[in-house]
Design a protein around this nucleic acid. Structure first.
Lengths: 165, 165
DNA sequence: AGAGTAGTTGATGATTATTCTCAATAAGTG
DNA sequence: CACTTATTGAGAATAATCATCAACTACTCT
């Protein structure tokens, strides 16, 4: 993975992304700080190809391989922080641990269809859902951070396998 | 959604529910057994008022209070089993542990709007979402078990509180 | 630019929800 | 009724995540 340092702007899919500067602005606004670790972690997610997502452990390994060694404590703290800021989405794709991906706006926004047996996951998009979700949040005065339809199902392969649950 | 099986009847809200008999039929079909524990646990969920959900620990306490003492091991096993059968929905409403509720079909089917700060949760319904989700699963040949839109957001109270993330 | 304040990191220990193990039990089958 | 095998219960084992705290450093204010 290539870690692009400094003022990144647009990724290759022409979607607006956070830059170090905008991340710093948003953090400082709340009295928090932009650290090299936070910047690096954001970049990893920005350079991730669509459909990819990382667990805390995954991210830890990626960074270690890149020679960027960031402690697991910081990984966990940063993932949670960024999820609560709405920068990352927290996904429950398989049992046991969470995955994270960049929380992309409209044209890239998507949902997940997950096999409860083998965890095979398919992404799909839907404008209406995003609109309905946004409206539901607005109606209650909630400030929306993420909106994801999760479909639990059994994939064709596992249906045929007739495995015990 | 697969909630109506075999000899199901109607509860007082006019929604189809599992009976001991229909649960047994579905279990036996796969070589499993209907035990008093499984029947009891299903009943607890069926008697839960709308909008309520239980964690494994909650269920354990409820049963203990009822003098029905079922071991935590069995609780966990049964919750997972029933979720995989599509009888229960597994919800990620707050950090740290899962909640479960009966997986009700159409007129009662609903989604969740959750405050990431205080975990206050609001339920809302949406036909279109259920339809879109069902279609998405069908298109991929997945056998759907559950379909839930989860909206992570900040509730009005927590917005005003300006608390640290 | 330099000093001070307070947020952040990293290492490690602590939690805690959930799963595993295994002997004893009991549901379903013929 | 006997037999096979799924299931239970108790406790130990896991694994993901969080808390703690001293050292460090980003940001702010002269």
């Amino acid at each position: 993975m290539i870690l692009k340092k400094g003022g990144s702007v647009e990724n290759n899919m022409n979607a607006p992304v956070y830059t170090a500067a905008s991340l710093k602005a948003e953090l400082n606004e709340k009295g928090w700080r932009l650290t090299p670790q936070r910047e690096t972690i954001l970049q990893v997610f920005q350079n991730l190809s669509e459909g990819k997502h990382l667990s805390a452990e995954d991210l830890y390994e990626v960074l270690k391989a890149d020679g960027e060694g960031i402690s697991l404590s910081t990984i966990y703290r940063t993932l949670k922080l960024m999820a609560r800021m709405g920068i990352l989405r927290e996904l429950e794709l398989a049992e046991g641990h969470k995955h994270y991906e960049l929380n992309q706006p409209y044209p890239h926004h998507h949902h997940h269809l997950i096999c409860v047996r083998c965890s095979k996951t398919i992404e799909f998009k839907s404008d209406p859902i995003l609109k309905i979700g946004t409206k539901a949040a607005q109606k209650e005065g909630y400030h929306i951070l993420d909106c994801q339809l999760t479909i639990h199902a059994v994939c064709p392969t596992c249906q045929r396998a007739l495995l015990p649950v």
